[in-house]
Simulated scan of single mutants.
Amino acid sequence: MSIYLEQIFQAAMIFPFVALIFTIPTIILQYRRFGHLHFLRLLIVFSFYLYILNLAFLVMLPLPTTLHNCPDGAVSGALYQLEPFRFFTDIAKEAHFHPQVPESYLRIFKASSFYQVAFNILLFLPLGVYFRYYFIQRFIPTALFSLGLSLFIEITQGTGVYGLFACPYRVLDVDDLFANTLGGILGFIAAPLFTFFLPERKRLLRYQAADRVSAVRRVIAWGVDYVILQLIWSFYLETLSYSKPVLLFILLILYFGVLPYLWKGFTFGKWLLRFRIEDINGRRHFFRFLHRGTWPSLLLTLDVAYFQWVNSVSIVSRVDAFIFLAILCLHAAFFLLVIFRITRADTRLFYEKWSRTKKRPL
């Protein structure tokens, strides 16, 4: 039991890092699938991540201390138990079970073989609950997935993690397939007992467009657009011999001004997060879109042009230091403006107001 608790503790320690990695993809999927963020739904998703992490740790750890883990004198080995329902025999033998001896019934619950089967059932019990409530799956898909996942685990163990280790370090047991699948089925059947206090799943999982584009949604879209622009710049434009600030300004204008007009108000980030740009009348207007994209493009280009110039000179004068300080203050003011605007009913920034455009969630 202590070794199981140790693995659960290790999973709990690693979970914050796993959650950090999956936060952005999860939020993107939530917006694309449901149109908005819901705290309880996010909590359920991350609890599922925690469950899968615990499942992986419990069935795979501890790993052998060396890749050459075969017993002395053996080059390779196999650990298989292919006799179905052998656990009945193992439990009866360990508990010295006899139908006419009442005390032997109690000894069943003290047998380590019984605990092993019970553990394998309980291990997949949450999977059935998640599949019925959150993933809205029927009985047969849930049972087949439980069987498939259990088979994948057993093959992984029986092959020494597909040849990574010289010998298997756990037994490939056909009875585990039965116990795990039974656990998934029981979880599916018992799901209402565990989820009765949660909202109706159709209400929790329905698509509902948000009233406005939140700051989180917008920042993630900016991040996606930044990655796309960085890839375009790194793999193509950076190799050209033209002025880098001029090329950057043209790229930004095309991306933030022209592309939304051609693509129904979308950039790649906005499309991924399911919101678009339109004018205040709900239409696409080329010059307003171009006006909107000009200001952030100009600010970013001036930053790049200034820092490129500073890197090209050998001595930085007081004027350069003053300009740098002014740019830093400008960025701080812009950041404070963003913080101020996202707390207001009208979250549009200055360049959105000047261009008479707005963001519309889908």
Rank of each mutant, 00 (worst) to 15 (best):
S113E: 07
Y115S: 03
E94I: 08
I91G: 00
I140L: 09
F114P: 01
D72Q: 12
R86A: 04
M60W: 13
F145N: 10
T142Y: 05
Y133K: 06
R138P: 04
Y80W: 05
S112P: 00
F87C: 00
H96M: 06
L106H: 00
F57Y: 14
A111I: 09
N69P: 13
S113R: 02
V59P: 07
F88S: 13
P62L: 14
T89Y: 13
Y115K: 03
A56K: 12
F109L: 06
F57M: 07
Q116L: 01
F145V: 10
C70D: 01
N69Y: 06
T89C: 03
F97S: 04
F145A: 10
E94V: 06
A111Y: 08
F114Y: 13
H96Y: 06
Y80H: 03
L147Y: 13
Q100A: 08
M60R: 14
F97W: 07
L123H: 02
L58R: 11
C70T: 00
F85A: 15
F135E: 02
Y80S: 01
G77A: 09
N69H: 14
T66E: 11
S76A: 12
L106C: 02
F135N: 02
F114A: 09
L61H: 15
S76E: 09
P62D: 15
L82F: 05
Q81A: 10
K93E: 14
L122V: 13
M60N: 14
F87A: 03
L144S: 04
F85E: 11
A111P: 09
N69Q: 13
F124K: 05
P141R: 06
S104F: 07
M60A: 15
F135P: 01
F119I: 01
L123A: 04
L147V: 10
H68Y: 15
P71H: 00
F124I: 08
L82I: 08
G128A: 10
Q116H: 01
L144Y: 11
P102V: 05
I121K: 10
A143M: 14
A95W: 02
P62V: 15
A78I: 13
L106Y: 00
R86D: 02
C70P: 02
V75I: 13
C70H: 00
F85L: 14
L147A: 13
G77S: 15
F135H: 04
L63T: 15
A143R: 11
F97E: 02
I121W: 14
I108F: 09
L122S: 10
K93P: 07
A95G: 03
V101C: 05
F109T: 05
L125N: 07
E94P: 08
K110Q: 15
Y134R: 08
F139Q: 00
P64W: 12
T142N: 11
V101G: 01
Q81S: 10
L63A: 12
